[in-house]
């Protein structure tokens, strides 16, 4: 019976015909829901840092230059395009684009940085409306990630205790 099965297998191949796509000469359109490179919209962003607090890859950093100016930086290196930042953004300032050809030898092509003017409610840390207690902000007040070295500074404790609040006040005085 083996000969017959070989014929059957050959038939499977012949019926299939040519299936190779002409990529990269011509790219297939991606589905509407495709999660590509996230794009940050500075006009919509309110600087709540909800995305930074819920990024599993820790690829979004926040740094407060002073009371009024907050910098948000997207590093784009380990980003897995899970789309959680876009999910939790209360202002829908992040969209998961349809860009997937993101290979580059200059990481700056991928990175985004937005500078935000922050008005007064910055210290309450509650402008981010979390979907559930599992997403709530773990750091209130000032955020001091290391933008220069693209390092995320996160305390091993998730919630600020008394001592750390004092440290934050010191930063303000500086």
């Amino acid at each position: 019976m083996s000969v017959l099965s070989k014929f059957q297998e050959a038939l499977v191949c012949l019926q299939a015909g040519r299936v190779t796509l002409p990529y990269p000469a011509q790219a297939q359109p991606v589905p509407a829901k495709f999660r590509g490179r996230p794009i940050f919209d500075a006009a919509k962003c309110i600087g709540c840092a909800g995305c930074a607090n819920n990024c599993p890859a820790r690829e979004i950093l926040v740094f407060d230059v002073c009371q009024e100016v907050r910098i948000l930086k997207y590093l784009g290196r380990r980003c897995t395009y899970c789309g959680r930042c876009a999910d939790v953004c209360p202002e829908k300032a992040i969209i998961m684009s349809h860009e997937f050809e993101n290979a580059t030898d200059a990481i700056a092509d991928i990175q985004q940085q937005i500078e935000l003017f922050m008005s007064t409610c910055q210290r309450c840390g509650r402008c981010f409306k979390e979907p559930s207690p599992l997403e709530q902000l773990k750091l209130k007040g000032y955020r001091m990630d290391d933008l220069g070295n693209e390092r995320w500074i996160y305390r091993s404790k998730a919630f600020l205790d008394e001592e750390q609040t004092v440290d934050d006040v010191n930063i303000e005085l500086d």
Partner: peptide
């Protein structure tokens, strides 16, 4: 290798529908 090619060809539409549902071929998140 014949069957290798064919079973992967048959598999491909599954990847595409996963992408349509979840936004990615494999990592559905």
């Amino acid at each position: 290798d014949t069957l290798f090619m064919q079973s992967w060809r048959i598999r491909e539409p599954i990847m595409w529908i996963a992408e349509k549902i979840s936004g990615n071929r494999k990592t559905y998140a």
